[in-house]
């Protein structure tokens, strides 16, 4: 469970922006784009525990 940090409206804005970016980069480069985005967001994360928890949660959601 992640603490809600972004206000809902900001989160929805980011969601829309990310969807558009994914479409812009195209299917062939989605993984590359998402990996770079993840690194940048890791750097913006407040602490290592949040990053590790996010990695665990994303892995768990693939099951």
């Amino acid at each position: 469970m992640f603490e809600q940090r972004l206000p809902a409206a900001d989160f929805e804005l980011a969601y829309e922006r990310l969807a558009a970016a994914l479409d812009s980069v195209g299917p062939g480069r989605e993984s590359e784009f998402l990996a770079r985005l993840a690194l940048l967001l890791m750097q913006a994360a407040p602490e290592i525990s949040a990053v590790l928890a996010a990695i665990d949660a994303a892995e768990a959601a693939l099951d």
């Binding site: 969601y15 990310l18 969807a19 994914l22 812009s24 299917p27 959601a61």
Partner: peptide, 11 residues
Amino acid sequence: TRGYRLLRDAA
């Protein structure tokens, strides 16, 4: 679009 679909399924 595919981008919206990827994010929707992730959510």
